[in-house]
Design a protein around this nucleic acid. Structure first.
Lengths: 342, 342
DNA sequence: CGCACTTGCGCAAGCGTTTGCGTTCGGTTG
DNA sequence: CAACCGAACGCAAACGCTTGCGCAAGTGCG
């Protein structure tokens, strides 16, 4: 059986309380005794039981992370980055995969994190009710997607401006029939900020005096398959687009696949611009709006730690930069005379 | 403050022990009382504190997952799949990202999972010492990569056979100068089975009567960048390969990038075959050896659950199938007359 | 030299559950 | 009808730690 704090205490000849204080750096222990205790503890291979210690202290030294789907590059990257920060600070990471409607419902109904975590990092946007449930826990909360939100610390990007970047790029290339594939808040589990990327897209169209054509918009899941299906739908329009803004790189890659299936060339026949700067966007030559994905995790995690330390002046929103990366999936519109004048 | 079991007990007018038994489905409680207790508990929004309950019962209802890098597609997918199984069974998932030498060392030195998890799922191959430490925990252990291993339940593929599949494909296409990019056990943190994929590659070469040329092998990290660097190195050889077997799709994609940088066409100038069937392998048209990645997680998680249930006849190794998927990154060797005769 | 502090440590009461055992009580048995 | 038994429930002791408080010895000061 693993050694307990009592074993250590007995071995040193002191009380358990002294061992506890010594090991956790609290004062009230002489230096000489402390080193002896530490040595004995190491010798016995003693590690404090987190359960017992959190029961007693009320602190759990773990953070709950809510993700819709760790398998997806974006979330995996964020979780990875956050974990580094947390583990460096001595916190463990409890991962909850809330991708399905079921698991998500169950989670918010039972709230298994209650009394189990010191803070929560959500990579999904809670609904109003869900947010209320989370707030009821009375612990620091952070969200890495979507805009500022009362009761939550948020880190994110300016989705609208990012989408404008992408769309304007296409406009500048001479495109007029610009499609959009993305997600609308219709789905029960959509996770991006309601419509913000779409708004950016629409803004630029208006700005450029391009009439809006609903046939040029297609929604689906934020996945390769979702993008593929959405793109396929766009292609069946009476007048298909000459360029498409995909709200995520994974959707953009799905679009690429659909285009290949239809024997259309990119960017000659159709230009594509994505969003995120996926690890492999470079490999497939995808023009995209880059955002510092890992930074989402790093920042959010750091903010939570500061909150846990009762730091003052912890900002409640951090905005990360975006910028356009032009690769080979976009080119001037054929039949258009002006190039990209950006 | 959240309701405790005592609050529930008082509200119903029974003892805490009865509440505990009622809520956890133990018998010794009349049906009528049980429903009343359940109702009151729900009403009060009571959730048992996992900490207290695991302290008392010795069961933690959580599983530790060791991953080298959740951000990588392979691991993210496995973790995701495993999480679904665990959470469905009421287990929480404690994620430990052991990608860096530091974090890995610290983890095995302190073993923070001690008394914190009921079982461990490792996505990395522990060294001898590390394995020893894990075994000392006295809990069920599973590994999703690498072959059978005493003291561990393993699920994996036949790496050697998979590599043979890939290499033979290239041989059959008429290639004779076949390169390999992958990882050798030289690195302190390599995670694939020592050399098995390489062995498969070598086997086929011997079989085909192709002399081995060390200049055609390049090792690096299992990442896009690693693959890119390795490929670049191969290209600087006196006589570069006409085909390359990459030990992972991510490396293969890196190779693709390197080739594009060198203005070489795939598959005309160089054929590439990868390993894993990455989500995006399809998008880039990569020929690859497919393995059911999510299945690694699902299977391993299920096996652990069975072990925790004290099931009998739990196999200690499950082998998953692999198969070759031919796409556009491979083609017959130019100047070679015979096509793929597979 | 007496006083008030400080320092270093032990005591013991939790923290919120689970669980072995004991008790009560209505209902079989022989 | 006594003896017995199982069902239903309460008691209290863990589980392994933290921490407020108390106490003794040592320190500085006037």
């Amino acid at each position: 059986m693993a050694a307990s704090i009592i074993d250590v205490a007995r071995a040193v000849g002191v009380s358990p309380s002294t061992v506890s204080r010594a090991l956790r750096g609290r004062d009230g222990v002489s230096d000489e005794l402390r080193v002896r205790i530490i040595a004995v503890a190491a010798d016995l291979g003693y590690t404090a039981s987190r359960n017992a210690s959190s029961l007693a202290s009320g602190r759990t030294c773990s953070i709950g992370v809510l993700a819709p789907y760790v398998g997806r590059w974006f979330f995996g990257t964020v979780v990875d980055a956050a974990e580094r920060v947390f583990s460096a600070a001595g916190y463990d990471l409890l991962l909850y995969n809330l991708g399905s409607v079921d698991s998500r419902k169950r989670f918010f109904a039972e709230l298994p994190v209650r009394k189990r975590v010191d803070a929560i990092l959500s990579l999904l946007i809670p609904t109003g009710d869900e947010a209320e449930r989370l707030r009821s826990l009375g612990i620091p909360l952070a969200i890495t997607v979507g805009g500022p939100r009362p009761g939550f610390t948020t880190v994110g990007i300016d989705d609208r401006a990012g989408a404008e970047l992408a769309t304007r790029h296409l406009v500048n290339l001479g495109h007029r029939r610009i499609g959009r594939i993305g997600t609308r808040p219709s789905a029960p589990l959509y996770w991006t900020t309601p419509d913000l990327r779409r708004r950016g897209y629409l803004d630029v169209l208006v700005d450029a005096g391009i009439p809006h054509d609903p046939d040029l918009e297609a929604d689906g899941e934020y996945t390769v398959e979702g993008g593929e299906r959405a793109m396929t739908r766009l292609l069946t329009a009476v007048r298909p687009p000459t360029a498409v803004f995909a709200e995520s790189d994974e959707m953009a890659m799905g679009a690429l696949r659909a285009l290949r299936a239809h024997r259309l060339r990119v960017p000659e026949d159709i230009a594509i611009v994505g969003f995120d700067d996926h690890e492999l966007a470079d490999v497939v030559g995808l023009t995209t709006v880059a955002q510092p994905v890992a930074e989402h995790g790093t920042q959010a995690a750091s903010l939570l730690l500061r909150l846990l330390r009762d730091d003052t002046d912890v900002p409640d929103h951090v905005e990360l930069p975006t910028h356009l990366i032009v690769r080979n999936s976009t080119a001037p519109h054929r039949g258009s005379l002006h190039g990209d004048i950006e």
